[in-house]
Amino acid sequence: MFEARLLQGSLLKKVMEALKELLNEAAWDCSDAGIQLQAMDNSHVSLVSLNLRAEGFDKYRCDRNLSMGMNLGSMSKILKCASNEDIITIKAQDNADTVTFVFESPDQDKVSDYEMKLMNLDQEHLGIPETDYACTIRLPSSEFARICRDLSQFGESMVISCTKEGVRFSATGDIGTGNIKLAQSAKVDKEEEAVVIEMQEPVSLTFACRYLNSFTKATSLSKSVQLSMSPEVPLVVEYKIEDIGHVRYYLAPKIED
């Protein structure tokens, strides 16, 4: 028996927004520690990793590990039937071929349930080694979304360069060049509005704007986002999900042919 009840059901709706542009289907791996999902986008350029800890749920029960293969388009349709204020419960029997989503209104006067067929998925799991990144940059998530949107107009690729002075995002294309420099915040009233850079060595890497823009679909999950970079390894874009977990995106840098 698996059962996970989330008081703040809107978080699951936001998680779905953060996943569905990159992934058509994915396996939700449930254990007594919580729910994890790891999947590559169809082109194998980027990797998405979601972690929702058991403690973050109001009620959590997982008698035996199970992997639920879900079509995210179908799951998204079902979650659209939940109001933002609803409490959401995900339920499945052991070895079942369906999962049930239960939506309760806050005052319990409306309860809906939707059953969805599960899929058999060939899972590909990648091992991600522990990495000490040369640069980590924390910035407001809305600022990062704006930068990705603005620079996408100039070209397909964006260069992210981090030095001790700050971080520079640039893109070049037919119409010209765009550069956006962010300096580290000197002082801030609110932690989530700060730009904070930790740097061991300067790094400059090139990434496809298309994927960065897809990652920013997670913006509503967190007020800030962390970018981690080292030379010649994938960028990590991490959005924390309140007290419950995180979603991380790994994007391979572009390489010269």
Binding site: G127, I128, P129, V233, A252, P253, K254, E256
Partner: peptide, 14 residues
């Protein structure tokens, strides 16, 4: 010409 590298170039299947 630039090429987009794949994530499987860096991380391996487990």
């Amino acid at each position: 010409k630039e090429l987009q590298s794949k994530i499987t170039k860096y991380y391996y299947h487990i």
